[in-house]
Amino acid sequence: MTSVPLEELDDAALLAAHVAGDAAAFGVLFTRHRERLWAVALRTMGNPEDAADGLQDALVAAFRRAGSFRGEAQVTTWLHRVVVNACLDRLRAAKVRRAEALPEDLEDRGLTLVGPAGTDASPDDGDPALASVRRERRDQVVAALRTLPPEQRAALVLVDLEGHSVAEAAAVLECAEGTVKSRCSRGRARLAPLLAPLMQSEDVGDPAPAAGNRPAGGHVGSATPPRGPPAG
């Protein structure tokens, strides 16, 4: 046990304190990274119900397997790996992709078509017609992501939406960097025809997402996805 307040410990020290028997340490660690872990689970699973189940599976696994952490990677990388693996396990077990309702609290960071809690992210959010168009476009992007094989979806979520580097994504997915690049490339190629109508509507003058956030080019979202936890 440690006399230092848990909130002042770094991630590795919190995990070590949990392994040593501190009953509160893991909760502090999870709370610290909750928003990012939830975002990864939500985008990978595609709906809040399955994301909650996947995240719960991951937290149970991380809680029980904390003693296996050897410090080869950052604790956050390890946590992301556990969450992604738990979500992929559920996706593989389901073997069927369903078209569930879009979660209202999805933060399309990197897409920025709709803001937090289902609010419109543009300065024209007082216009119901514009808000409807933006919601429809968000639906199209998220529905397109759901059509990808789990491994491609996970790679795109980490690189294009969460803003991880290829190296970081490779560490999370426990595969070679070339594999991550290949999965992202194939995923973007599969998304391109699905998102073509959305981009064509922008080209003829329909209300468009914020500059730099069109789902075109090298990334699903923007050329340089933002970093850091999603806004609450």
Score class of each variant (00 low, 15 high):
L130W: 13
P128H: 08
A143R: 15
G46Q: 03
T147V: 04
R146K: 07
D105W: 07
V166P: 00
R65H: 12
D120S: 14
E136T: 13
L106S: 05
E151G: 00
L79Q: 08
D108E: 12
A23S: 11
A94G: 07
P149H: 04
L37T: 02
H33D: 03
R43N: 08
D124A: 13
L148N: 02
T147A: 04
T76D: 15
S132Q: 11
A143I: 04
L55D: 02
A51W: 01
L29C: 00
R65F: 11
F69C: 05
D22T: 00
P103L: 05
R146P: 00
E100F: 14
R65T: 12
R138T: 09
G118H: 06
L106I: 13
V75S: 09
P149S: 07
T112I: 12
T112K: 13
G71Q: 08
G54Q: 01
R153D: 02
D120W: 09
D125W: 10
R36P: 01
V28H: 01
A86F: 10
R146I: 02
L29V: 00
S68G: 10
A25R: 01
Q74C: 09
A121I: 13
Q74T: 15
G163R: 03
Q74N: 08
L55A: 00
V159C: 06
L113K: 09
A52F: 06
A61R: 15
